[in-house]
């Protein structure tokens, strides 16, 4: 499916562009983080320890007013003292208000974000591309009708539509057993991966229209290519032509769009978690919401997942740019000639 020529282009573009290198590093890093979360996370991300709550990250310290009561000569004296809380190596990024390890939560949060982003985008691709290819290939009235429907979907503000749908369908979550825990490699870690099922469906539903549009545009221009006419002249059916000629030739723009949409979906998922509409409790957006009320005293609770979101989104967009530049049909066809 991937020709050696495509690989060559991808490699040379990666060598040439520092931004592409950065993007690939970020995405690979976050991907590994998500896959090996139980191995990498120093603590169980759900483990609460109120004694160690709101510990600052390494290199920072905070002061805290602590009230203690002492029995001296049968009298209770209330002593107020200012205590300096130092960071501990045990919690390099500190802890949240319930004493949960922020690093572990951020590592685990990558799982939710990537799962929702990738599965959501795949669903959107599946629906949108099929829809768009059919609309573009048949064109005319079929196209008119189908694309009007897609345009209506896209006309809604996506967050509002998402919230409305979740309100309608509830916040179902699917629990998948964590293979590392099941195999006994990391006992004591959360036993399940929680996939917020409704959120996945909703982000796919909100985003498929973009894929339909791109696929439709490609199909519309590809259907008049002479090799499509040639295939018809030898008796090929529509399904064969779409599968052999139209789809493979529209893969590049769809792939680039899909990459960028993964980032958009991650942002949307974070927003939904932040607003409390996602079923997931281990998510960057959820943690930001949790940390919001402690921003003045414990800024790291909201900031760490925030940085993670920024890095993920920037990384994925850079990968999208890299794919677009490397797979540019102009380069690929190499018509050159002076």
């Amino acid at each position: 499916m991937i020709s050696p020529r495509t690989l060559r282009n991808l490699r040379s573009e990666l060598r040439r562009s520092a931004l592409a290198k950065l993007g690939v590093t970020l995405v690979v890093g976050i991907f590994l983080m998500a896959v090996f979360a139980p191995v990498l996370a120093p603590h169980d991300p759900t483990d609460q320890n109120l004694n160690d709550s709101q510990l600052p990250p390494l290199g920072f310290s905070t002061t805290e007013n602590r009230t203690t009561s002492e029995f001296v000569d049968g009298e209770v004296t209330i002593v107020e003292e200012e205590v300096t809380v130092n960071a501990t190596a045990e919690h390099p990024l500190g802890t949240d208000s319930l004493g949960r390890d922020v690093l572990s939560r951020t590592i685990y949060g990558a799982r939710t974000s990537l799962l929702v982003g990738v599965i959501g985008a795949l669903l959107a691709v599946l629906v949108g591309v099929t829809y768009g290819l059919v609309a573009g290939y048949y064109s005319g009235r079929v196209d008119d009708g189908l694309m009007r429907a897609a345009d209506v979907m896209l006309a809604f503000p996506s967050l509002v539509l998402a919230i409305a749908l979740i309100g309608l369908w509830g916040r179902a979550a699917i629990r998948i057993p964590d293979p590392f825990v099941a195999a006994g490699i990391t006992p004591g870690m959360p036993p399940d991966i929680v996939l917020p099922g409704t959120v996945v469906l909703v982000v796919a539903l909100v985003n498929w229209g973009w894929f339909a549009r791109v696929a439709r545009g490609e199909a519309l221009s590809l259907r008049s290519q002479e090799y499509v006419t040639a295939a018809r002249s030898m008796g090929a059916g529509d399904a064969f032509i779409i599968r052999t000629h139209v789809f493979p030739n529209s893969v590049t723009p769809i792939l680039v769009l899909a990459t960028i949409q993964v980032a958009a979906i991650i942002l949307l998922e974070s927003a939904l978690s932040f607003l409390g509409f996602s079923g997931a409790t281990l998510s960057w957006g959820f943690d930001i919401a949790q940390g919001r009320q402690y921003l003045s005293s414990s800024w790291w609770i909201a900031t760490m997942p925030g940085i993670a979101i920024v890095l993920a989104v920037v990384g994925i967009n850079l990968v999208g740019d890299w794919l677009r530049d490397a797979l540019d049909p102009g380069i690929e066809q190499g018509e050159g000639g002076v």
């Binding site: 290519q225 002479e226 090799y227 006419t229 052999t244 000629h245 030739n249």
Partner: peptide, 10 residues
């Protein structure tokens, strides 16, 4: 066909 570029699937 006429166009040797568009008549073959790249």
């Amino acid at each position: 066909f006429q166009d040797p570029f568009s008549s073959l699937d790249p």
